[in-house]
Amino acid sequence: MSDKTLNTTKTYLITGAAGFIGSFLSKKLLEQGCQVIGIDNLNDYYDINLKQARFDLLKSYKNFTFIKGDIAEKSQLTDVFAKYKPNFVVNLAAQAGVRYSIENPDVYIQSNIIGFYNILEACRHHPVEHLVYASSSSVYGANKKVPFEETDFVDNPVSLYASTKKSNELMAHTYSHLYNIPATGLRFFTVYGPMGRPDMAYFGFADKYFAGEPIKIFNNGDFDNDLYRDFTYIDDIVTGIERLLTNPPSKSEGAPHRVFNIGNNNPEKLMDFIHALEKALSNATGRKVEFEKIYEPIKPGDVPATYASTDLLYEAVGFKPETSIEEGLQKFADWYVDYYNVK
């Protein structure tokens, strides 16, 4: 375990810097005086105003440089590496979402496969001290054994999104092996919090409630066999990335490549999470909030449970996520009510 702190003389390249995780991580590094180069294509997969609001928080820092660009554009990305010579790269630019991948497969191949290949090529030709990249808990597919451990078999993805993330892990391992690129993949488990992604269920539930519409719950109304999710608060994710950045893998175990789960290690029933959100919104608005609920069958590509073992992460950097859903959802609800000025 290392207690190394971030080196503020180094340059940190964050792709997807206007995204949820990317913006929070960039802000944390900027606050510590690090030089941050942010890349984002500012696409309209969800509300561009929210991306702009995150970006506005970052651009006030003198040590922040923003580049509007797409990692799928190889020449532009190569130019960025040549000009800024980043020491550390965190690749968070990706087309997210399981259900969207069923409707729009092309964008997943462009961003998650071609884009990531371009990142690896750039790190090959402009060596970096550490590449950290986003994988996903979705790689575990329909695995029945819980908690999910990094050594589990992950060759049965149930969505194209999951396939692209599994591909990223294989590609990174290969490049680490061939070109000695220290790389760490992070399997994120249902990240939530203020300024989060509107396509995530908890955010959509709030939107539906304030629009006077019912919410859809994809568990067949089966409370005995409810869906379980390992909800992970954004600050815990950022702390985990920050700790891992200064802990690149070595060649001692073959290729300098590792994969870690970052999850709450405390799965919640989906219905308990919904009740906690109702309570948090009630506190934030000063009135009782109760969702009108419609129960539907589980969607293709969804899995019954996501539950992370975080033992490896703790062994490596002495950290495990610990924010409760009550605390995290209250912060989200307070932000939501203020940001959207709902009464």
Score class of each variant (00 low, 15 high):
N156F: 12
S167F: 12
M200S: 09
K74F: 11
P300G: 07
G193W: 05
H257R: 04
F223H: 07
V107M: 14
T306W: 03
T190P: 02
R197F: 03
V128A: 08
E150T: 05
D272N: 11
F273R: 06
S2W: 09
V158Q: 01
N265E: 07
K4D: 11
T11Q: 01
K68I: 10
Y307S: 11
N247M: 12
F188A: 00
L329R: 05
Y100P: 06
L313A: 06
R229A: 06
E278L: 08
L58Y: 03
E326A: 14
E169H: 13
L170T: 14
A305V: 15
G97L: 07
Y175M: 08
Y295R: 11
I109M: 12
S252P: 00
I102A: 14
Y45V: 04
A82E: 14
A72D: 10
Y12T: 01
T11N: 03
Q95T: 07
N283Y: 08
D199T: 15
Y100D: 13
R229M: 14
L281C: 07
G196E: 02
N341G: 03
A53Q: 05
N7I: 06
R99G: 11
N112R: 04
T15W: 06
F223A: 09
F188P: 01
A206N: 05
D235G: 01
G221S: 12
D302Q: 15
D44P: 04
D199S: 10
V158T: 05
N265S: 14
V90D: 03
F24K: 01
E242F: 01
P321T: 10
Q95A: 04
Y228N: 12
D155S: 08
V317A: 05
T174C: 11
D3G: 15
Y100G: 06
V98Q: 07
D236Y: 01
L245P: 08
K28P: 00
G221A: 13
T65F: 00
E150R: 04
F88H: 00
N156H: 13
F231H: 07
F203Y: 15
F231Y: 10
M171K: 09
R99V: 15
Y45G: 03
I241D: 00
N104H: 14
L13R: 02
A17F: 05
I215Y: 06
N7H: 05
P182K: 12
G263S: 05
M1P: 10
H173T: 03
V342T: 11
A316C: 15
I241L: 03
N41G: 04
K10L: 12
S135E: 06
P198G: 09
N247G: 07
G212I: 15
P248L: 15
V107F: 15
P127M: 11
S137M: 14
V146I: 15
P214Q: 10
G185D: 00
S2G: 09
T306P: 05
S159M: 14
F189G: 02
I109R: 09
N341F: 08
A333F: 06
E290I: 06
L29S: 00
K59Y: 02
N220I: 13
V317R: 01
R54H: 01
P248C: 12
M171N: 02
N225Y: 08
T310L: 04
I298P: 05
D226G: 08
L245V: 11
A142R: 08
H177P: 02
A255L: 03
L58I: 04
G318L: 14
T65H: 02
N63D: 01
Y192A: 02
G328F: 00
D302N: 12
T8E: 08
E213K: 12
L57V: 12
